[in-house]
């Protein structure tokens, strides 16, 4: 493990992340993959986010969909846990609320595969600061 010693090292790690993601997911280019983030704070996990995440990983692989599923912290929508964010290649990310396994299945089949709109989308309600 090389230690970070300068600001330039930080920049290098930043670029490394992308290629590493490609490697880990076994894909040539992570840009072509569907990216899914599962809100795994305490409230998410308590509402069943872990099961949803396990299901997503298994189902996406079985159905041959190129995807990267990762955990993230609390998205802040406690009233609609578990929450997941789905980003299809070239599209804006979409956050779904109240995702149980049945709904996760629906999201794969309808939204990810067919691009159909689904109920239960939580619109972005905050500004981000540009990094």
């Amino acid at each position: 493990m090389t230690k970070i010693k300068t600001l330039a090292d930080l920049e290098r790690i930043k670029n490394e992340l992308r290629s590493e993601l490609d490697l880990e997911s076994g894909l040539l280019n992570s840009e072509n993959a569907v990216k899914i983030k599962v809100g795994m704070g305490t409230s998410g996990i308590a509402s069943g986010a872990k099961d949803v995440m396990d299901f997503l990983i298994e189902a996406l692989e079985k159905r041959n969909i190129e995807a990267i599923v990762s955990q993230t912290g609390d998205m802040g929508y406690s009233y609609a846990e578990p929450t997941i964010e789905v980003q299809k290649p070239g599209k804006d990310p979409v956050v779904f609320g109240d995702v149980d396994i049945k709904k996760a299945d629906l999201i794969i089949e309808k939204y990810i595969k067919l691009g159909e709109e689904l109920q239960g989308v939580i619109p972005v309600n905050y500004q981000t600061i540009d990094n």
């Binding site: 930043k14 992340l17 955990q71 993230t72 912290g73 609390d74 239960g120 309600n125 905050y126 600061i129």
Partner: peptide
């Protein structure tokens, strides 16, 4: 889809990375 929310009253500074990065991967923070 049933959720009523307003747009952009919020600004996320302290929560900037919350629900965005994998908290167990330092590279995502970097």
């Amino acid at each position: 889809g049933g959720f009523k929310m307003s747009q952009h009253k919020q600004i996320r500074i302290a929560l900037n990375n919350c629900g965005v990065i994998d908290p167990e991967n330092i590279k995502e923070y970097i």
